[in-house]
Computed example of a mutant assay.
Amino acid sequence: MFTLEEARRRYAEVRPRVDELIAARADLAELQADLATDGSSPLGGLPEAKALEARLHALLEELAEHEIQIKGYAPVLLDFPGVRDGRAVLWCWLEGDADIEWYHRVECGFAGRRRV
């Protein structure tokens, strides 16, 4: 369980990996689109696509090893289990957020997001 401050510190620790995940995801999407339409890409071919897929999976596993729940990767959505006012919550970071600025009760899910 993370306090808000601990979740923010953990997020700061893994932020370089999150940025790497976002870049690899974009490269893979572009490479796949090129291969599907033109049969070639400046980013490479099928071996490079497979390598990017493997890198994405490795990055997702690495984040999970930090006790972070990965709820999505396009866009990236990360949850950090915690407690607020005696209730189980998930401190929530969505791609594009500057920091962890949201939370939601576990049973409410993303639709129950509230500002910290």
Rank of each mutant, 00 (worst) to 15 (best):
V18I: 15
L63V: 02
A88L: 11
L94I: 15
V14G: 08
L60N: 05
D19F: 02
C92P: 11
Q32F: 03
E107A: 12
D85F: 04
A98G: 14
R25P: 02
I68S: 10
S40R: 13
G39Q: 08
A24C: 06
G39T: 12
Q69P: 02
R8K: 15
E5D: 11
H104R: 03
M1P: 10
D27Y: 05
G109A: 04
A74Y: 11
D34F: 09
T37S: 13
S41K: 04
R115K: 14
V89T: 10
Y103L: 09
L35R: 08
M1K: 08
V76P: 01
R15D: 06
V14C: 06
D19P: 01
V106M: 09
Q32M: 11
R105W: 13
A24S: 09
A98K: 13
E30I: 07
E101V: 15
I22M: 09
E107S: 11
E20T: 08
L63Q: 08
L59M: 04
R105L: 14
E20Y: 06
Y103H: 15
E67M: 04
V116P: 02
P16N: 07
A111F: 09
F2Y: 15
L21Y: 09
A33F: 12
F80D: 05
P42F: 03
W91K: 00
S40G: 02
C108G: 06
T37W: 10
L78A: 02
R55E: 13
P16G: 05
E6H: 04
Y103K: 03
R17C: 02
G112T: 08
A12P: 01
G86K: 11
L28P: 10
L43T: 06
I100D: 00
A54M: 02
A98S: 13
D97F: 12
L94H: 12
A24K: 08
V106P: 00
S40V: 06
W102D: 00
D27G: 03
D97G: 03
E61R: 14
G45L: 07
A23Y: 03
E53I: 07
R87M: 07
R113A: 00
L90S: 05
W93V: 00
M1F: 05
I68N: 09
S40H: 14
R17D: 14
R84M: 06
L35H: 12
Y103Q: 12
L35D: 12
A36W: 07
